[in-house]
Design a protein around this nucleic acid. Structure first.
Lengths: 111, 111
DNA sequence: TTATTATATTGCAATATTACGATTAATATT
DNA sequence: AATATTAATCGTAATATTGCAATATAATAA
């Protein structure tokens, strides 16, 4: 069907899934990495950096913005994007909480 | 197109995207959480736990197995799944590396 | 052997995602 | 004002994902 049965899952599970989608496409990872490097926000020179069409980049930016992990401010005819610190911390914490829940078993504890 | 242009991106970017997909669906998050809780591996009582059809669960398990984040061993007619410690650590480190690359700007550093 | 149980696989149908060209809207430049 | 630049949006095509019923496979139980 392609349609996720969100009603079967907890809010936390759904939220984690949405946050994970920010990283679930290499183009979006590339955009995030670019933003991490050039801390000084950016605009659409991502089109140069990645080899994708302008419309495609714009679409990925919108997804990242919808997830909330980035934010954009209008600067004349350009738009400066940057990481949203609060949302970043939130997502980071959500993932860390999961990652830290697993303690490697001493030995043949498991399969 | 629905087809990702993987050749445009670095190996790291592609690998992160693949790993993120493990968490990019609430059912898979639920499966991982269930595995974290009942440390003692499990089988397909996920079908009871989540409200999805057996075939659907099986499919998500295969995806998680393909990503490598879980592993399964045959135990008679059942299959015990558990988290793959090495792969788990690998993914955890990959994400932490990204998450730690961002230092919240002192003030109006950005947009 | 014949059932039963547990899980994987196959084959769909429906929806989502990825990508891009074309268009639009808004600001900049001349 | 006329034109260029920038980026969002629309429409569309191709592929991927989600979900399930039905079937297949494998091990166990009767």
């Amino acid at each position: 069907m392609g349609v996720t049965k969100t009603e079967l899952f907890t809010d936390v599970q759904n939220h984690i899934a949405i946050a994970a989608k920010a990283f679930a496409h290499p183009a979006r990872v590339a955009i995030i990495q670019y933003l991490l490097k050039s801390n000084v926000c950016i605009n659409g020179d991502l089109v140069q950096e990645l080899g994708l069409a302008q419309a495609t980049i714009s679409q990925h930016l919108r997804e990242l913005k919808d997830i909330g992990i980035i934010q954009g401010t209008i600067e004349g005819s350009r738009i400066s994007y940057c990481i949203n610190p609060e949302r970043w911390a939130e997502i980071k914490n959500q993932f860390n909480e999961i990652f830290n829940q697993f303690a490697s078993p001493s030995s043949g504890d498991c399969c």
